[in-house]
Design a protein around this nucleic acid. Sequence first.
DNA 1: ATTCGCAAAGTTTTT
DNA 2: CTTTGCGAAT
Length: 785
Amino acid sequence: MPPLSPDNILSPLNSQQRLAVQQIEGPLLILAGPGSGKTRVITHRIAHMIHQGIPSQSIVALTFTNKAADEMRNRLQNLSPDNRTWTGTFHRFCSRLLRQHAELVGLQQNFTIYDSGDSKKVMKQAIENAKVDLKHYSADKLASQVSNVKNNGITTEHFKPRPGHALDTIIGKVYPEYQKLLKIANGVDFDDLLLHAVDLLKIAPELRETLDRGFAYMMVDEYQDTNLTQYQLIRMLNHSLKNLAVTGDPDQSIYGWRGANINNILEFEKDYPGVNLVRLEQNYRSTPTILRVADQLIANNVRRKKKQLHTDNPEGAPVRLVTFPSPRDESLDIADTIQLGIESGKHRAKDYAVLYRANWLSRSVEHALRSAGLPYQIINGHEFYQRKEIKDVLGYLHLLNNPRDNVAFERVVNTPPRKIGKVTLGRLRRWAQDNNSSMLDAARNCDQINTISKAPTSKLTQFVAMFDRLSFMSTDQVEPVIRAILDETDFRNWLTLDGSEEGYERAGNVDELVVACEEFDRDRPTEGGLEAYLEQAALVSDTDIWESQSDRVTLMTLHAAKGLEFPNVYIVGLEDGILPHERSSTDDDQIEEERRLLFVGITRAEKHLQISRCVNRFRRGSFWPAIASRFLMELPREEMQIFEPAGTNYDEEGVADSISQIDPWMHDGLPSIDINEETDLSGIDTNVAPAPQPQQNSPQNSLSGISLKIQTGAQLAEKQAAMPSQIRLHPDRFETGMKVQHAEYGVGNIVQLTGEGQKRTATIHFASLGNKRFRLAFTNLSILE
DNA sequence: ATTCGCAAAGTTTTT
DNA sequence: CTTTGCGAAT
């Protein structure tokens, strides 16, 4: 453990980093590019402040993920042992605050934190109560819209529907009802943690003032990802004392969909006049090549602060850009390369990461890695805590901790089945609402509810009796409680009743949960266990599960990869509709965010990076032709190593066509001299470089020893022609200006015609949709005039 | 009340 | 291809 001396704190820093560390008073904006030592700056800055005599408990560092907070805490611990600085996530910070002052915002201290699944149930109830019909908007849509509103710091009192906005009107009904139900259940959703905290500070100005001065120095990590509610929280705690340092990178803002407001960082200088600005532009992570690729891509964004990323790292290998026929080939090739890398002794499994836009894309990769016998860890949703059997058991814990938790009550009252059906529950719910009581209390008084008949009454009474037996237990330790629950309910027997494989698997999961509770008890032997356990269970994120030490290949989404780095990175599925995602391709802001997402992915790589796409993608049960992502066109192809099998140029939008125009490989199947001169081919095994053979059907290309089944344009044309039998007019029949009928899009006018033969493409203008492009060989059009 | 079966829908990203 | 939801049968 190094002693706390100015030398240890300042000497390992470059001049910019030192500037940021030594700037203690007043507002500070640290624009930190990827791999620029941001965490180091934050931790050294805190250590420096402590060394300067600032009480460590007056410093707070807020992050978005537990992973980031833990990392920070550990590193700070090394620099400054015995510090009492609070590091943690926004949500935990707010939760702590709310538990201390719950009554002020109409909660009880033992409130439940609902995950998105639970809050969706509340939302459905709210929709029913508010008598809103779901013809126009789904429950999901309404839930996310309400979340949006809350992320913008708007409480039910302040929400004013804009006249003429149908959605607003509905939200105006549903939102208050939803909040009412949450309050009755003494529950909060994720957004509430932040929103109620802000509310609390507004209601209690003297508390705000105390906290503002108490947390005299505040640091916020990933400031570009803050939403308006978080922004308000930060402002309110940095009003009297404005010693606020934020770090962030607008280019890595990827949570706009969750309400993150990139303006918070772009306008930080306006919000806090007299701000000091430090740019961390030296990158210690990646090769110059990788950085150039990242830089050129992100240069296409308009909404950003320009940075000049540079590095002293050695040049390294070129970035590879590969087109595969199918995800299977993509995955097999990746698995194979990884295996070779490990066998050669140059790399370990943990040096590799495969990143993708959406979780479902991991499947084929997972399969390939498993077949190859490679160890991997997949970071995938709240998988464990999401399982039904886990949620069921946790439901009992929640109900014990917060007897007003109606969601938990409804979850467990008939699990395992006790012959309490939805009719009974409906009556119970009605009575509870009419009598302002919780469902549990309603069940307690069910003999007074005349709509409920004898049999269910006795069942409910039994359930309440069981609950009461359990609630006598001390909640200091979790494990005894959970064991008692399993005993009382005979849970394991119920799971394994049918003797199915699945049942035993579920029972195994429950056992795992018990072990997790034991561990929790062991780590925190004294404190009031149950509530703390439930809180941490609610606030863990999938990325927290990621183990940096374990020697396994990492599979995760691009979002989850933020903040991490790997020697070798594969980014897969660079296809239109996937990245950018089809639901984010409507407006420019969303496209920019998708671009940032790819930027984040690229900048995770230290030494080797491969970006790939497939020509066909298995989606919704069958293979569909996939169009290359538009972002591929924005990369500096002249300095990348490009592998494209022949015949990849058959996408409808003509993207691959343009590739073929830029990429000499596509013209005659031979690498051009230009490419060879400009590309560093050292380290490339010439045997694995493909020799594309246009129009050839047999497998020819081999990447890293895996053969690629080339699907040619001709093949695809055949395939498409074999699809729904429709008579297609010869491409030459069409002329610009013609009025044509498209089966799906209706009537339009041909505004442009390009290409020859199979590639002949028409741009057609539809009144309703604007311009669309079609390959005439594959599209069924009839001529109207 | 529970279970089974079929149909439809839908596949972002997360505290 | 999967999961979810709903409705009918037991």
